[in-house]
Design a protein around this nucleic acid. Structure first.
Lengths: 210, 210
DNA sequence: TTGACAAGTGACCGAACGGTAACTAAAATT
DNA sequence: AATTTTAGTTACCGTTCGGTCACTTGTCAA
């Protein structure tokens, strides 16, 4: 009954390790204890399985983004994390620190976002669509979010000056960079977690002085 | 006569686009106007072609690193770029800015580093060796280099305080992040180049104030 | 009770894969 | 001049690939 979902799960596991071309239909069917012919009762091709994984990940990504965010009264379009900003009292830098670490720990401990990230990483040059999706999800959206955040922090005087966009890059880029090491070399997990923590602290120390 | 080198060139071009599994021996032989059987006169297997490309890139990488660097008298182990540091008069922040942009422009305009970077990006999870190579080349080495640089900048008083390692991450990570966008979406090249320039300027504005 | 349907199976298909064998012609070596 | 080596060819090998087909079996609605 849940075979279709199991197929998607196993396919994602395989694709994230060996890529689309490196994964055969038997590779997917084998661990599920079914024949590869059975896969074609649920999907018409290997490509369709891949496409469905991407589609589903996009749905889940949007869900998380929507549930995590709330329309901020000022900007109208700006989406702010509920924990990052109290609509009535402003933004807390300490809350932001905590929030980043929570985001990182979830992204690195849960198998699903890990596998999706790996799959997208090794497939990012396969089509324009996948290239754009990768950029949007792991760079543009995150930078946009942080940029709005720093705009607020400057308005409220927590940070005195600086370009919000450049600040967002300096804040976010090291995080994703260390997550990259973490993905490639799980043995360095603790080192990366500490580096991220140090970076976030150091960043706020610096910006408070400016 | 130069067939062996042509094979490596064409293989790198193919591997960087479609990956190891997505590239067939005929794909490599075809554009060179030879039969795939001829490839086996120069390499004993497809894997050996891939390995040789990696090996060669490692040699070239080390060459560039050595030629670009000079042993800094203080640390002994620290390697400093000749343009970044004048052994007798100290480090120039402006020279560093220029140097980063030169490095970026070379990395993004020359086909060879681009293809190697793409190939390594989509192959980074295929083995522990490749994982480590990617981390070393595009993160650890760069961070280490910048860290030494910021140590000097703090010593000489150009920057008043801050952890050199955290500073290096804030400085370098956005650069490689924008290079990632540039690689995936060449149409955004100008946008990325400007973002990197803005980031570098903004970074030095901030650190001078601290 | 029966008949439609969903979800499997194993056998099979043509194509493409990585790789080899036998052969050839030119170039280099002796 | 004779011979070996190099670098290429075509034809072919066994295997694996994505995908199809005919068939079976259990479930469930008419």
């Amino acid at each position: 009954m849940n075979t279709k979902e199991q197929i998607l799960e196993e396919a994602l596991r395989q694709f994230s390790r060996k890529g689309f071309d490196g994964t055969s239909m038997s590779d997917i069917a084998g661990p599920l204890g079914i024949s590869k012919a059975a896969l074609y009762k649920h999907f018409k091709s290997k490509q369709q399985i891949f496409d469905r994984i991407i589609e589903e990940s996009e749905e889940k990504y949007k869900d998380v983004l929507d549930k995590l965010s709330v329309h901020y009264p000022d900007g109208g379009n700006a989406k702010m994390n509920k924990k990052d900003v109290d609509v009535y009292s402003g933004i807390s830098a300490e809350g932001l620190c905590e929030n980043v670490l929570t985001f990182v720990r979830f992204s690195m401990s849960d198998e699903y976002p890990k596998q999706v990230r790996r799959m997208l990483t090794i497939s990012q040059f396969q089509s324009n669509e996948l290239s754009k999706m990768y950029s949007k999800r792991y760079v543009d959206d995150m930078l946009g979010y942080d940029e709005k955040l720093f705009e607020q922090l400057i308005k409220t005087g927590v940070i005195k000056n600086g370009d919000p966009k450049a600040l967002a890059a300096m804040f976010y880029a090291p995080v994703i960079m260390y997550m990259g090491i973490w993905d490639r070399e799980p043995k360095r997990a603790k080192e990366c977690e500490k580096a991220i923590k140090d970076h976030v602290e150091q960043f706020f120390n610096m910006t408070k002085l400016c």
